[in-house]
């Protein structure tokens, strides 16, 4: 059985079809990339998977459990944690406290949560900034914190929304290394990314969305030569 099974998932905003009849699976231990031009519906898919918006129709099954109708915090408790494309720190809390909120999911005791949070901060290279306030961080630090908060909740499936957007090449390299390492340790990841280099590099499998519809699915090689994908990104050859 797949870890995550999405079947016939659709979401309409009024008359606008943001996601239409999407079906895919994520297997345990995989890194699956979700790509598509701007406005293709990637973030809408994430919002549905994480419980922030309910699907109009279709079903989301995680580890044999139906997730439709669950709230984000329940989905997080089940082991699926998301990050946000636009970073969402707690500005008036320190980096350590920010991360503790994630750690509290598995460690209700403050001492344990603090230990877990510090461990996590080392992984995302923010341990030196533990006492800084969320509001005082640079974009790179905020991007790392966004991942750190989610990691601290010890998810089995991590949903990363544009973790590398806006970063420099060397910084992106760091995040790639971290993601690969997490995956080697057994974490399953579904990632949305604009940067082709990142997604082609990391993903075992790629799903391509365009105007809310799944137009292709396959390995990075297959996707890079897929006619529908080339058309969606580069336009139709007249």
């Amino acid at each position: 059985m797949s870890m995550l099974t999405v079947s016939n998932l659709s979401r309409y905003f009024g008359g606008l079809a943001a996601v239409v009849d999407m079906s895919f699976t994520v297997e345990k231990g995989e890194i699956v990339g979700l790509i598509g031009p701007n406005g293709a519906g990637k973030t809408t898919v994430f919002n549905m998977l994480s419980g922030f918006i309910p699907p109009t129709s279709g079903e989301i099954i995680y580890q044999g459990r139906r997730m439709n109708g669950l709230k984000p915090h329940q989905i997080c408790e089940l082991g699926v944690t998301r990050t946000f494309q636009v970073v969402q720190p707690f500005p008036d809390m320190t980096v350590l406290e920010n991360t503790m909120i994630g750690a509290y999911v598995r460690h209700p005791n403050t001492t344990d949560a603090k230990r877990k949070a510090l461990e996590t901060l080392e992984r995302v290279d923010l341990d030196a900034k533990a006492d800084k306030l969320g509001r005082d961080l640079t974009l790179l630090e905020l991007k790392r914190l966004e991942i750190g908060k989610a990691l601290a909740s010890e998810p089995d499936l991590l949903l990363l929304d544009e973790a590398a957007a806006g970063l420099k090449d060397t910084e992106i390299e760091d995040i790639l290394t971290l993601i690969r390492q997490l995956n080697r340790e057994g974490m399953t990841l579904l990632i949305v990314e604009h940067l082709m280099k990142v997604i082609m590099n990391l993903s075992h499998r790629i799903i391509v969305l365009d105007f809310g519809k799944m137009i292709a699915e396959g390995t990075p090689q297959e996707i890079s030569q897929h006619p529908a994908v080339l058309e969606a990104y580069l336009g139709k050859d007249e």
Partner: peptide, 21 residues
Amino acid sequence: RFGYHLIAVRENEDAAEALGV
């Protein structure tokens, strides 16, 4: 935990919810 959760709710409700609060 309750105290930190209160502040997290005040600071950013969506982020708190996404992190299991």
